[in-house]
Amino acid sequence: MAETVLSISHLTKQFDGQTVLEDLSLDVSEGEVVVIVGSSGCGKSTLLRCINALEEIQGGEIRLRGELIRHDGKNLPELRQKIGMVFQSYELFPHLTVLENLLLAPVKAQKRSRNEVREEALALLERVGLKEKADSWPRQLSGGQKQRVAIVRALIMHPEILLFDEVTAALDPEMVREVLDVIVSLADQGRTMLIVTHEMSFARAVADRIILLEDRRILEESSPDQFFTAPKTEQARKFLQTFEFIRKKKEEA
């Protein structure tokens, strides 16, 4: 059994008295890819935001390799360096070039040497096919390119775990592929990842474990094959149906 990287136990999250996540527990082991699915507003994104303490939690605890993540913790910046987060809306820094976007945190937060990080950044950009964009400004990139840069920006911090928050939701359909390919290749390298997505075929391909979040808690937890072919719960079946399109033939109607 691989070592546990992330451990969430009895997490409760409320917004203004309204419970969004309740008594939620989840462990992610080293090298594991866990995909979280669920209908809009079920708290998937909130869960990710709790993990890197962008949200305060009202109950339970979250640990990264045994270290407690607290919203007001003194070591929060150090812990966040070990948690790579990729946002739906990319959130590149518009006043910095692609390369400067990648260098900022390693140089300022991790105090690594600029030259060393620069070389790594260029190598990583090459791997995602964007080496020639190193000196471009974010606004000159397409959505898919921006998101690939955002992934590299998370990777260059050498995180213990990567969190992906609906990273293709804001993309045009033809750009979804290039981003998902990058994530699949990261899975092949054995990266530990927690992914929130609405792309079901991607989820099936990349996941070691699928989690259905519904009604504030984990409703179903299965292997991808089981989840997509023989879901255990009625809700999971209903959820999967929302992705299918069945149309009666005209003469039947």
């Binding site: 910046p77 987060m85 911090m157």
Partner: peptide, 13 residues
Amino acid sequence: RIQEESALSLGLT
């Protein structure tokens, strides 16, 4: 605000 969150989640103070 999410620009700040993006910076914080990279481990900047």
